[in-house]
Design a protein around this nucleic acid. Sequence first.
DNA 1: ATATTTTAGTAGTATTTTACTACTTTGTCA
DNA 2: TGACAAAGTAGTAAAATACTACTAAAATAT
Lengths: 272, 272
Amino acid sequence: MEKRNANGLTEKEFLAQYNPGDYKRPSVTVDILVLGMNEKLDGLKVLLIRRKDHPFMDCWALAGGFVEYDESTYRAAVRELYEETGLSDIYLEQLYTMSQPYRDPRMRVIDVAYIALIPVVEAHAGSDASEAAWFDVSMTDEEMILKNETLQVEMRYLLEKKVFHNGILQIENYVPKLQSEEALAFDHAEIVMEGLLRIRNKVEYTDIAFNLMPQEFTLPDLQKVYEILLGKTLYKTNFRDKIQDKVVALDKKGISVTGGKKSLLYRYKNRY
Amino acid sequence: MEKRNANGLTEKEFLAQYNPGDYKRPSVTVDILVLGMNEKLDGLKVLLIRRKDHPFMDCWALAGGFVEYDESTYRAAVRELYEETGLSDIYLEQLYTMSQPYRDPRMRVIDVAYIALIPVVEAHAGSDASEAAWFDVSMTDEEMILKNETLQVEMRYLLEKKVFHNGILQIENYVPKLQSEEALAFDHAEIVMEGLLRIRNKVEYTDIAFNLMPQEFTLPDLQKVYEILLGKTLYKTNFRDKIQDKVVALDKKGISVTGGKKSLLYRYKNRY
DNA sequence: ATATTTTAGTAGTATTTTACTACTTTGTCA
DNA sequence: TGACAAAGTAGTAAAATACTACTAAAATAT
């Protein structure tokens, strides 16, 4: 602590005289990509909020807001998620930081995007003020589609490969190109795309999928979730072999989402 | 474009009167975790720069600096990397955004960390002003060690499991706890840890490892790189089977890094 | 220069994982 | 009550991974 710098100052003295300067600084926001399975477990849903002012007025956007001066972005994401949707105690992981200088026409904004996963999309439409809605989302190699049947809204994006100046492909592998009348606000389409890729990938080597399940679930339902996330069908024998040590059988039965014979209920082993 | 908000303003009018407010805003920085294989291809190296002022004076830190008001963090990372190390045209990918309120004692700083991968650690010690050095880095499930034999510096961290309030494990799975006299500046140990985990994981499903190879390389050398990144030995027959459609054989031979019989040279197929 | 050592590169087999078919059981629904 | 639908189990084929063994070519030691 006795160390002195080139000007002969100790750390304490240095910090006391430190002037951060009058540079223009960007605002910092968080956005949360809230994902959940739909009722039939045959597709993913995203929670979107309709903007009520410029810019991107009337467009659909991810939940989000400004980061307070003395909170971490993770805390801000937890707080905003609760304020805007009433959701709490759910899986939340940092996704990507968006920083293009003119991504917001009002001012310079750095946006830290998070992914939230929720078990089965139930009520919680609550969300006090803002107009929120769940959209079916799907993504192939060529396009990404978000739609809400009851609202008659469909947003469609073409995925274009993006190659960098040095010929090396970056995280930002694809850029979504708008193909429909309606569009997501800001660069939120990119966030959705990145989020779907992240989830898809993480299913393979983590237990992330369990965050999309209720406390108790049947194996056929769990398999359906895996199949949607991975984008391919699985063989039940193999599937059961692989996950058998991750789940515990309960001695009661439940009805799987698509009728038929009753199925044994399980819960996730490592949680709770 | 005729849309008017609740105050009767068009987007143009809205933007003209928009006042971003007088909130305190954080500064934004980028840090770059520069990784490369060592000469013998039996370990990874990190490029560190010695700090010459408070805070963390004399500590070793990642390359990095402030983001300009009108540049993206990616651009800032490219620029800083060039300014501090002379490196350009290398693999650069966003890693994680650090945002704990007091991570920098001077002021509130949001730091966007990037990973850079460079082919074989050669000269480029150049780096104009700053004192830079390569450190051997290794990480097991229990600890992370960074050391430089010639400088006689060793930094050692214990990896402690971190469980969140809601019982759900986050990206920030582990926290590095300092075990040695010397330490990395700021929260850079966490960045190094996250970076190593990211690379280790990405090797399995991407061709990221080729960014650590020179233009032309032998298969035994490529295998050594994979083995270091994956942390386990591979069988050469199987390795060659898996990799054969990613590489093109050249009709010349080179000497693999550990003597013996001369080995055929290859190059990566998808690049250049 | 010759023998010894070291690594490159290939062949081949055992084991495990993944792909796929088939059948019995237990529930729902008309 | 019979037809249908999904649950759950058994078993086999094909493919990937684990592992051993050998020959060829270069470096090094004697």
